[in-house]
Simulated assay, not measured.
Amino acid sequence: MARPPRFDTNQLLDAAVRLAATAGPAAVTMSAVAAEVGAPSGSVYHRFPRRSTLLAEVWLRTVESFQRGYFEAIAARADAREAACAAARQVVAWSRAHPQEATVLLYGAEDFGRADWSQEHLRRADRDDRRVRAALASLAADLGAASPQATERVLLAVVDLPLSLVRRHLRTSDPLPAHAEDLAEECTAALLGSLPTEPASRPK
């Protein structure tokens, strides 16, 4: 009977996230990940045949983890304004629960070697990008954003604003304050205040 592997894929990716959060994507090497978990380098190469594969998986797993909660927060509210406020809260709440992963997302896919990713990883990244763009476009439409300026206001309210709050604390390694979720929601609601006062109800 084959002995189960001592180090699974998620353990290795968790170690890579720790390295990236502490010292940036450049610190994520095959040997560094192996040393982080106390594994032989062969354990890393067995699951990730090259460094570009490892970097792609670190980035994509982190993005997809964030997006799952973000989409769920939007979908859980029938009212579009409540959905927008929930989305802003989720950015902060997820970052509080996953500070290392949130620090990883302060970088971009290019910092994780996107130029060297496989076609499969590029397709996965493009799919994720399309999903978030579609979700935000749908939310903006539900909020009654009928002009480019109104759409920009929605994106500022549900993406840029909560991210800026998170980014400031992560970059200084300060814990997010207890009121951060409430502050993000209040600011989002204020920004959306000048949009139409009777947004369409969102389909369930």
Rank of each mutant, 00 (worst) to 15 (best):
A2E: 09
A2Q: 09
P4K: 05
R6K: 12
F7R: 09
F7S: 06
L12F: 10
L12H: 06
A15H: 06
V17C: 05
V17W: 01
L19C: 08
A21N: 02
T22S: 13
T22F: 06
T22A: 14
A23G: 06
A23L: 02
G24F: 09
P25G: 04
A26H: 12
S31M: 12
A32F: 08
A34R: 07
A34I: 08
A35I: 00
E36C: 09
E36M: 07
E36R: 13
V37Y: 08
G38D: 03
A39H: 07
S41R: 15
G42L: 04
V44R: 07
V44L: 13
Y45E: 01
H46R: 11
F48T: 01
R51I: 10
S52I: 15
L55N: 00
L55I: 04
L55A: 04
V58K: 03
W59K: 01
W59M: 03
L60W: 01
L60Y: 06
S65M: 09
Y70M: 09
F71D: 13
F71Y: 13
F71E: 13
A73K: 01
I74A: 03
I74E: 02
I74W: 02
R77W: 08
A78T: 14
A80V: 09
R81P: 02
R81G: 09
A86G: 13
A88Y: 03
A88Q: 03
V92D: 00
A93S: 14
W94C: 06
S95Q: 07
H98M: 10
P99G: 02
Q100T: 05
L105V: 10
L105Q: 09
G108Q: 13
G108V: 13
E110R: 15
D111N: 14
D111K: 12
G113T: 13
A115E: 15
A115F: 13
D116S: 15
D116Q: 15
Q119G: 14
H121D: 13
R124T: 07
A125E: 12
D126W: 04
D126M: 07
R127S: 14
R127I: 07
R127A: 15
D129S: 10
R130C: 03
R130I: 01
A134W: 12
L136E: 09
L136M: 08
A137T: 11
A137C: 08
S138G: 12
S138F: 04
D142A: 12
P148Y: 00
A150V: 05
A150F: 00
R153C: 03
V154L: 05
L156D: 11
D160Q: 07
D160H: 10
D160N: 10
L161T: 14
L163R: 13
S164D: 08
S164Y: 02
S164G: 12
V166G: 00
V166K: 00
R167L: 02
R168N: 04
T172R: 14
D174F: 00
H179P: 01
D182Q: 13
E186G: 09
C187W: 09
A189P: 11
A190W: 15
A190G: 11
L191C: 14
L191W: 07
L192H: 10
G193T: 11
S194T: 15
P196Y: 03
P196V: 03
P196Q: 08
E198K: 15
E198N: 11
R202D: 04
R202Q: 13
R202A: 02
K204D: 08
